[in-house]
Design a protein around this nucleic acid. Sequence first.
DNA 1: CGGTAGGTTGATTGAGATCAATGGCCGTGG
DNA 2: CCACGGCCATTGATCTCAATCAACCTACCG
Lengths: 232, 232
Amino acid sequence: MLENTSTYNALHPNCQHCMLYCFCLQAANANKPQTLVHKKRQLKPKELLYSCRDKFSNIYAIKAGAVKTFGIDMEGKEHIHHFYLAGEMMGFEAVHAGCYPFSAISMSAETEVCEIRYEHLLEAIFSHPDLHRKILSFISQRFNFGLYVTAPHAVQRLASFLLELEQRLHAETSCSEFTLCMSRQDIGNYLGLATETVSRIFTRLQRDRIISVSNRKVKVLALEKLRWIAQG
Amino acid sequence: MLENTSTYNALHPNCQHCMLYCFCLQAANANKPQTLVHKKRQLKPKELLYSCRDKFSNIYAIKAGAVKTFGIDMEGKEHIHHFYLAGEMMGFEAVHAGCYPFSAISMSAETEVCEIRYEHLLEAIFSHPDLHRKILSFISQRFNFGLYVTAPHAVQRLASFLLELEQRLHAETSCSEFTLCMSRQDIGNYLGLATETVSRIFTRLQRDRIISVSNRKVKVLALEKLRWIAQG
DNA sequence: CGGTAGGTTGATTGAGATCAATGGCCGTGG
DNA sequence: CCACGGCCATTGATCTCAATCAACCTACCG
């Protein structure tokens, strides 16, 4: 039970972008036992957070790293549902059915998540109207992600994807450089494109001096052009 | 102010599938002034419910008919975001930004919506824990809609779309017959397909005795086959 | 070292976009 | 009443973009 530590370090730098930061900080300052975060989990790359059809009981806040949710179709092929990045929360899509509709695995060496019992979260919401607004706001934002996956051209999808990623990674550095946390195959899968197509488009965008790519390092060289491409 | 009638007829047959039914019924029985539904609106086909970028203040419950949300791109082409059917609620995607990210128009001759102030809804949620669960559950369900729009083959997308529609129209008749509330163009737009492709696939599915189509009337003849196709 | 996973590049193929023409339906107006 | 135009749907012909198949390269790891 020591895991549910009463001295949860809400001041960890990775927490600063978390939606629950204020809440945790408040609890920590008041020396209240931490009731919201049930436990923290450190995940190795490709380590499963939960499986498709597991009974739903937890929401997870990604403290560091990244997590992807996916399902396996009848032919054994993977279908990616969403990527969750540091500072985001995941698990809400399981509320309705009472079980997780997808499996979730870590995509990074330093993934760390805070496990939050959904029931506790509901209680917390009742005593913290602010938290309620924040959570609804966050959920609302999710509806506006990935709207480009049906764009008519592959390059539009990829450009939009990169722009969204850059936003969500809230590039502290403002220099428009970031590291993809997923493989080309994952990107293609998410965007409804073949791996080879993703690779070719990266090459083309680089040739045209719109981005530079080296492995998973991406740098946006011409933001406006990229936006233009994303729009078609 | 008579619009905010205190004798809102919660017993209207169209209300029975509404998420807020119990809540409204309760309020009606207690002879409480109806605080949740701010006003009701009757919409003609193609009548605008709200415009993209309008300030967000209302959630809408679709009492009858159907509504689509869409945006217009730089070339003037329409991009459909979602279809909302009778019994569903819409507007949550605007919470985060504080304005509607899409325009919403009626798709049916008998569209009727209940306008609910978001602030009132938040208040109501606080006094009705049940309502809170229901709303989060509904929002959660939304995340599981439209997951098929990146399926590799057009026929998979359309099959999945039809299956989802049939579910959501909660076919009272269980005879798997329903009426599409949208044009072929809307379907194609939503699924990332050309109108002609949608039409051709309908024809093929009919030829193969999997569905029968006549204008916007669709009847599922071979549910299992359709499911099989949807999976690939 | 060799093995494997991830990534790139080229050649070929195919599904669906696009272009074009036609027919049905409906509301409008002569 | 019918004629007309607009919208929607269907069908055919052609073209194009991205999938597929295949080879190769690189980095990483036991």
